[in-house]
Design a protein around this nucleic acid. Structure first.
Length: 927
RNA sequence: GCCGAAGUGGCGGAAUGGCAGACGCAUGCGACUCAAAAUCGCACGGGGAAACCCGUGUGGGUUCAACUCCCACCUUCGGCACCA
């Protein structure tokens, strides 16, 4: 018997050997097909989480598989190292963000080296390195020079907890909370830097050339929010133009008033003296209201009349202009024509302020709409009425439900009249990238009293982040108070000037890291064009769905902006020279394929069952003594017996067996009896019930991968994570079921170290084993192809079972056995790289298994020689017959009709029809 | 309200329209052991002695055949939402 499987001994040994040999170094080689695989890089929070393992190790298995299939695979890793937690650590614990960050990176790097991935550490990129953020700043300058970055004063989203502004994408949910910390955001008027993502709206919602999940494509398309309609220009009585966007130009004749957003620039001019006091009061009230209040569901609409009037260009009608906060300055032109009959919001407003409602679309069928009796608007289809020469025009949606025929007709007429034109509007906003925080890449701009806003010269990059800064959460950038950083000279006139003190959104750093990985030490540009020409674009990206409308939008925007800023034309030229047909599309999309894995949640657990003794104070029990007991043993003398559902400092929430909820309070005199703790137990030792939720330190449900690796080894942890969940789904951690994977690898160790079970070699048994092996080749290959890691590992476990049976039976030759073991190890190599490398050597093979070719599937060997013919009568299985796999249809049907089970169910009746399915070996007899 | 995804044993999960529950966990019984653990063997959706019946959220439908396709509904989760 060979020695035992000790992963703790094997794994570090191989990790070191691979590293010394640079086994996983990826070097560009135009003669070999490339595959750029990438998984989302982590934030250096301090410790590798089981979620990191869950995201990274299956991606690694797939990259390894591609490598064995002959691809030159690049699978790099790095750190998204700028960001708030570092700065918060500085504020709370007085550690410099840089020290905190790099200490964490070192630790996580160490942890990652235990995972057994093929990360090429020579290509590691760390976004907070000056060599990295130099290019983040350089990109800012390129965007600025190409008109894609601008500075604007606007009411922006501000997180009062993170003390910084946020991009629209980083404000989530009904309550408009900060994506990072969950605090509801407020509005602030600030001068901020923006990137013109809206210029790419159309391209961003087009995913035709990339293989991304439908879910992500849909979320992005919704986020961009394209609507088709027309711009129509109304005029005030004074002659000022008010252009509105409408998706329903066919309802123009029903516009009975106009509404401007409170922030609209024309409000002041239009407002008459009689109305001015009311309007100004309304505007200042609106400004004080939070976005949540303004947009709260079901909130009654409010507004005031300006006293001004506009002329409807289609019928010269004089209509009043109102101000109301249900019109948003940030969408369209901040002004609308109100058609109360056919828009629910306008309808509610008109009813409240008694404004006229005019029907211009009459639905057919039911009785005619009557403005006096309507209880809601009619936004649907019908015939145009009260609409001048268009009266009688049908306004119905085409079969696709999108185009309304009247819209096209009216828009064409508006264009001819010169009062409007077809237009497309997007919900997408420009990307606000200014952050009032220290730990980020400084925005490379300078403000000069004489020259205005001046970009830093490219040769002066990077603008280094100074170390000696005071971290106070003031809501202003700490850099603002650093004289040495703040004061500089103007690059244009040389006079005294001040630097921009805001830093860039860290999503900017992560928008281009796939490029920096190619050559993290290159100083002639963000990346070496030679490397780019070979590796780009990323072939397969994996990561969480939570970035659908943030990182995954930003990086697409970035790549397109890079393309259009023309800085990378040389990369395409080099790629052309390499003979790449897609050379001109290296920067159309950053990642050709995307796959989202799910999330590992905390392990659900029961709370302790306690018996509490004490006195009731109203509904609360003031406990003198608390005893943790077995679920079955309920002492009759206890005041409260039940499961602990929650624990808060000194109180326990208990649910009794009859379902009542009781609060048990403890104090310093309360005594505890917790069997597993012994004497000195305290309220903190009582375990409380935990539902499935995200892992968090405060919940105490965090699974530490280091501990798992120490106990079981990295191979087991990798294989378990791949086996136990459907990768895209994720789910709650289960600490018990890892045993199945533990046993699997112990079995593999035993099996491979066993001498070939040669007893009485039986040709049939040999064929069976070789067949099973080939079928496994197919299943594992298919599984890796489709991210079906769980079924791939399951088929490898099934092969283990077959090999164990073979050892029992001792009926295969040495050659067949060795061939099977060899294939088994190759198939397992992507999943469990350490044990397979060890066993590969022990079975007399040359180092390294990870440089071997993936087994070729042999369909002939995999083909069954015998099959179970399944015989159904009216779709119900009545008989199973073992037959030769190449049985003829006639023979199969004959056997089926003669079988006992069929005869019993036919009762002598002649079948109406007999169906034979060759591929399934199935007969269905219909009577 | 709009858009989308998902509902399968006690649990994680399998099933190109063709034998529902692969593989694993847990559980039960047995073997080994002085004993326990580990390991090995057997059982393991429900009912039934068996034949067989029922069973993939619910109700319909298409089909020789439906977890899978179609329609309606329920539940859960996710995104968007006064977006003109």
């Amino acid at each position: 018997m060979a020695d035992k499987y000790v992963p703790q001994e094997i794994e570090p040994r191989w990790a070191e050997r691979w590293e010394n040999d640079q086994l996983y170094r990826s070097v560009a080689d135009p003669n070999r097909p490339k595959f750029y695989a990438m998984t989302m890089l982590p934030y250096p929070s301090g410790d590798l989480h089981i979620g990191h393992w869950y995201a990274m190790t299956p991606s690694d298995a797939r990259a390894r598989w591609l490598r064995m299939r002959g691809y030159n695979v690049l699978f790099p890793m790095g750190f998204d190292a700028f960001g708030l937690p570092a700065e918060n650590a500085a504020i709370q614990r007085n550690i410099h963000p840089k020290i905190w960050t790099y200490k964490n990176i070192n630790n996580m790097r160490r942890q990652m080296r235990t995972m057994g991935t093929i990360f090429d550490w020579k290509r590691e990129a760390v976004s907070s390195d000056p060599e990295y953020y130099r290019w983040t700043q350089w990109f800012f300058l390129q965007l600025y020079k190409h008109g894609l970055a601008y500075r604007q004063h606007a009411a922006v989203d501000f997180c009062p907890n993170c003390n910084t502004t946020l991009a629209r994408e980083q404000v989530w949910g009904d309550d408009r909370h900060c994506e990072r910390c969950g605090t509801p955001v407020i509005k602030k008027e600030l001068e901020q830097w923006f990137f013109s993502t809206t210029k790419y709206a159309e391209e961003l919602m087009n995913h035709d050339t990339i293989n991304w999940p439908e879910r992500v494509k849909l979320m992005q398309a919704n986020w961009v929010g394209r609507s088709e309609g027309a711009h129509v220009t109304f005029r005030t009585e004074q002659g000022d133009a008010i252009t509105v966007f409408t998706t329903r130009p066919d309802t123009l004749w029903g516009a009975t008033f106009m509404v401007l957003a409170p922030e609209h620039p024309l409000v002041e001019k239009i407002t008459t003296d009689q109305c001015r006091a009311d309007v100004e009061a309304y505007i200042s009230a609106a400004a004080r209201k939070s976005e949540i209040d303004r947009t709260a569901e079901g909130r009654e609409k409010t507004g005031v009349f300006t006293g001004g009037y506009a002329i409807n260009p289609v019928n010269q009608e004089r209509i009043p202009i109102w101000v109301a906060d249900y019109v948003l300055i940030s969408y369209g032109s901040g002004a609308i024509m109100a058609v109360p009959a056919h828009d629910q919001r306008d309808f509610e407003f008109a009813r409240k302020y008694d404004l006229p409602i005019r029907i211009v679309i009459q639905p057919d069928g039911a009785s005619d709409l009557d403005p006096a009796k309507m209880t809601e608007s009619w936004p649907g289809e019908g015939i145009m009425v009260n609409s001048g020469q268009f009266t009688g025009t049908p306004a119905y949606y085409a079969a696709d439900g999108k185009k309304n025929e009247a819209v096209g007709i009216v828009t064409a007429w508006l264009e001819k009249q010169g009062i409007g034109q077809g237009a497309v509007n997007y919900r997408l906003r420009d990307w606000l990238i200014s952050r009032q925080r220290y730990w980020g890449a400084p925005i490379p701009m300078i403000y000069c009293d004489r020259c205005g806003v001046v970009p830093v010269n490219e040769k002066d990059l990077p603008i280094l982040l100074p170390d000696d800064v005071d971290f106070k959460p003031t809501g202003e950038s700490p850099l603002k108070h650093h004289e040495g950083f703040l004061n500089t000279s103007c690059p244009q006139c040389g006079g005294p000037a001040k630097r921009e003190t805001d830093t860039m959104d860290t999503f900017m750093c992560s928008s281009w890291y796939q490029y920096r990985y190619l050559s993290p030490n290159y100083d002639g540009g963000p990346f070496d064009p030679e490397e780019g020409a070979y590796w780009l674009p990323v072939d397969q990206y994996t990561g969480g769905i939570e970035h659908a409308t943030m990182h995954l939008m930003y990086t697409r925007f970035f790549t397109k902006a890079m393309r259009d800023s023309g800085s990378f034309a040389n990369v395409a030229a080099i790629a052309q020279g390499m003979g790449r047909a897609d050379a001109n599309h290296l920067f159309d999309e950053p990642m050709l394929a995307l796959y989202n894995q799910g999330m590992i949640l905390g392990e659900p657990r029961d709370g302790d069952i306690i018996a509490a003794y004490g006195k009731f104070d109203g509904q609360k029990l003031i406990a003198q003594h608390i005893r943790v007991i077995a679920a079955t043993a309920a002492p009759a003398d206890a005041a409260v017996v039940g499961e602990v559902m929650g624990r808060k400092e000194l109180t326990l929430d208990v649910i009794t067996s009859d379902g009542r909820s009781v609060v048990v309070e403890t104090d310093e005199k309360t005594t505890f009896d917790v069997p597993r703790v012994g004497s000195g137990a305290a309220v903190e030792n009582i375990i409380y019930h935990l539902d499935v939720e995200k892992m968090s330190k405060s919940k105490g449900n965090v699974v530490a991968p280091d501990e798992l690796v120490a106990e079981y080894g990295a191979d087991t942890v990798r294989a378990y994570l791949m086996f136990a969940f459907e990768w895209s789904q994720g789910g709650p951690w289960d600490s018990k079921s890892i045993q199945g994977t533990v046993r699997w690898l112990y079995d593999i160790w035993e099996i491979v170290n066993t001498a070939a079970p040669v007893g009485n070699p039986d040709p049939k048994a040999e064929r069976n084993l070789r067949r099973k092996v080939q079928q496994t080749v197919k299943k594992v290959s298919d599984g890796l192809e489709t991210f079906g890691f769980n079924t791939a590992v399951a088929s490898l476990m099934a092969l283990r079972n077959a090999l164990k049976s073979t050892i029992q039976a001792k009926n295969v030759s040495r050659a067949v056995w060795n061939e099977s073991i060899e294939t088994l190890l190759l198939l397992m190599a992507p999943f469990t790289p350490f044990i397979t490398e060890e066993l590969w050597g022990r079975t007399g093979h040359r180092y390294s298994i990870h440089n071997q070719s993936w087994p070729t599937y042999n369909a002939e060997i995999a083909a069954e020689e015998e099959i179970t013919l399944v015989v159904q009568v009216n779709g119900k299985v009545r008989e199973r017959i073992m037959v030769a796999a190449d049985i003829s249809e006639d023979e199969a049907i004959r056997l089926a009709l003669e079988s006992e089970g069929v005869l019993r169910h036919l009762n002598g009746v002649t079948p109406k029809k007999v169906i034979y399915i060759t591929a399934r070996g199935m007969v269905n007899i219909v009577v």
